[in-house]
Computed example of a mutant assay.
Amino acid sequence: MSGQDQAAGLRKWADLQRQQRGADEVGHNVESDETVPAAPVNEEEAAAYTQEAMAPTVAAAAEPATVAPPRPKKTLVVVGLPHAGAAQVDKVRGRLGQWSALGRQWAGDPQDWDVHIVMPDSASLTDLAERYSRWALWINSDADAFATMYRVLRQLREHGGPRRLLALHEPHLPRRGLLDNLGNASARYLDIELLLLAR
C-alpha cells in the first residue's frame, strides 16, 4: 500500500499516546475513585500499530518486479538476396508481415523472427544447415528470376545446404508459372523441396 496507510497508522498510535497522557493527567487532578485511567499503550502495541501500517509497504518493496521475459526469436536463414544488411532483413520482415496480414499464422509478428541473410556459396553453409531448421529462398519476380533462383538452389546443393526451403515471395505472385516451374525443377534435378504458399 501507499505511504498514506503508514501515516494513518502512526496518527492512530499518536492519538492513543495523547489519550493515555490525558487520562493520566485527569486521574491526578480528579480525586474521585470512579475515574479509571485508560490502559497505557506499551511499546509492543505501538510497534504493532506501526508494523500494521508499514507491512503492506514493506511487502510491496520486497516483491521482485514482474517483468515479462522476452519472447524467444525464431531464426530464419534466407538465401537469394544479393547481399546481407539491415535493409535486406527489413525487406524479409516486411514480406513476413504481408503473409501474416493474409492470415498465415506461422508468420506471426515479423519482429519475432531473427533473420539471417546467407550467401548460397558460403563456406559455413553445411554447419548452418545442421544448426537451423527454418530456411527460405527469396524469389524475385523479374524476367530473370527463374535462372537466378535456380542458380542459387544449385549452389545450395553443391555446398551442403538445406533440402527444404520456404519460397518467400510477393503475396500476389501466382503459383502457376515461375513458382511451379521453380518448385518442380528444384525437386526433380536438385532434390530440394520448395514450399510454395501462393494462393
Rank of each mutant, 00 (worst) to 15 (best):
L81N: 12
L137I: 03
K74R: 13
A107L: 10
Q155D: 02
D121P: 00
D142W: 10
G160M: 07
S100K: 08
Q105M: 13
A38V: 07
Y150H: 13
A48K: 06
E158F: 03
V89R: 03
D144H: 12
A84H: 06
K74Y: 02
G161I: 00
Y49T: 05
R154E: 11
Y49S: 05
V89K: 01
R104N: 12
T148P: 01
M149W: 12
A107Y: 11
T50P: 02
L96H: 12
Q98Y: 10
H28L: 13
E130N: 14
T35E: 05
G85R: 08
V152T: 05
L96W: 14
D109F: 11
A147C: 01
A68S: 07
A47F: 04
P37L: 11
V67D: 02
P110Q: 10
D90A: 14
L102F: 11
A62C: 02
T126N: 08
H116S: 08
E158M: 00
Q111V: 06
K74V: 09
L96A: 09
K73H: 15
I139G: 04
A107C: 08
A38R: 14
E130L: 06
Q98L: 09
A101T: 08
R157V: 03
T66D: 03
L137Q: 06
E31P: 07
E44L: 06
A62K: 01
W138T: 02
E44C: 02
R154S: 13
M149F: 00
D90I: 00
S141M: 09
H28R: 10
M149Y: 05
T35R: 11
E63F: 04
L96D: 07
W99Y: 13
V58Q: 07
Q88L: 04
W106G: 03
A47Q: 03
W138D: 06
E44D: 05
A39K: 15
V30K: 00
E52G: 09
A48N: 08
A147Q: 10
P70H: 11
Q88C: 10
A55M: 08
E130R: 10
A48M: 08
T50D: 03
G97Q: 06
A61F: 05
T126D: 15
V67C: 00
A61R: 06
A39W: 11
S141E: 07
S124N: 07
W135D: 15
Q98R: 13
R131M: 02
K74T: 12
T75I: 09
R134A: 10
H28P: 00
D121A: 10
R134G: 00
V152L: 00
E31T: 09
A129Y: 12
E158H: 01
G80Q: 10
A129H: 06
L76E: 13
H28W: 14
R93C: 01
A47K: 03
P110W: 13
A61E: 01
A107P: 03
M149P: 00
D33T: 12
E63G: 01
D144E: 14
Q51K: 05
V92M: 12
A65Q: 15
A136N: 13
H159Y: 15
R71W: 04
A48P: 00
M149D: 07
K74E: 07
S32E: 12
P162L: 02
H116P: 04
